Simulated scan of single mutants.
Amino acid sequence: MADTKQSERHAERKAAKLAKEIGSFSRAHGGAEGQLAYLGQAGTRIVLVGEDGGWGDLVAPTHAIAAAAAEQAGLTLHEAFDGELAAKVRTGPYEWTRMAGIQVGGPAGG
């Protein structure tokens, strides 16, 4: 029973920390929307897209923690990373060079 309460407190602290990071991203980018992507045993990725086209991500150890963090931060979530959400993302030279490097043997480490 004590382990369960300790585990719940840990999950609450982790969700609160992630919510704070989401809020910081949102303030820096004029607002934000997101999507939760299951990563298997690694957890769940919280993909963030700012109103200015900036993007980033965070990884939560579980889907429940990711969902709690998004809710605490007031993040609007999309079911999938496509359509309207994907169209908001703005990439720069770094991303294009890195993507090209991965595909055609160019600079891969960025």
Results as ranks from 00 to 15, higher is better:
residue 3 D to F: 14
residue 3 D to Y: 05
residue 5 K to F: 08
residue 6 Q to D: 10
residue 7 S to D: 15
residue 8 E to Q: 14
residue 8 E to N: 15
residue 9 R to A: 08
residue 12 E to Q: 15
residue 13 R to F: 13
residue 14 K to C: 07
residue 14 K to S: 04
residue 14 K to F: 03
residue 15 A to Y: 04
residue 15 A to I: 12
residue 17 K to L: 14
residue 17 K to S: 15
residue 18 L to M: 05
residue 21 E to F: 12
residue 22 I to H: 07
residue 26 S to L: 13
residue 27 R to M: 08
residue 27 R to G: 12
residue 27 R to E: 11
residue 33 E to R: 02
residue 35 Q to D: 00
residue 36 L to T: 00
residue 36 L to G: 00
residue 39 L to S: 08
residue 45 R to T: 06
residue 46 I to N: 01
residue 46 I to G: 02
residue 48 L to I: 04
residue 48 L to R: 05
residue 50 G to Y: 00
residue 50 G to I: 03
residue 51 E to S: 09
residue 51 E to L: 01
residue 54 G to K: 01
residue 55 W to D: 03
residue 56 G to D: 12
residue 57 D to F: 12
residue 60 A to W: 05
residue 67 A to C: 15
residue 67 A to L: 15
residue 67 A to E: 13
residue 69 A to G: 08
residue 71 E to M: 07
residue 72 Q to Y: 09
residue 73 A to M: 08
residue 74 G to M: 07
residue 74 G to T: 10
residue 75 L to P: 08
residue 75 L to C: 05
residue 75 L to M: 08
residue 77 L to D: 04
residue 78 H to R: 06
residue 79 E to W: 01
residue 82 D to C: 02
residue 82 D to Q: 06
residue 85 L to V: 01
residue 85 L to T: 00
residue 86 A to Q: 07
residue 88 K to E: 02
residue 89 V to A: 01
residue 90 R to N: 06
residue 91 T to M: 06
residue 92 G to L: 10
residue 96 W to A: 12
residue 96 W to H: 14
residue 97 T to A: 13
residue 97 T to R: 15
residue 98 R to F: 01
residue 100 A to H: 09
residue 100 A to W: 12
residue 101 G to M: 12
residue 101 G to P: 09
residue 101 G to A: 11
residue 103 Q to S: 15
residue 106 G to K: 04
residue 109 G to F: 01
residue 109 G to W: 13
residue 110 G to L: 09
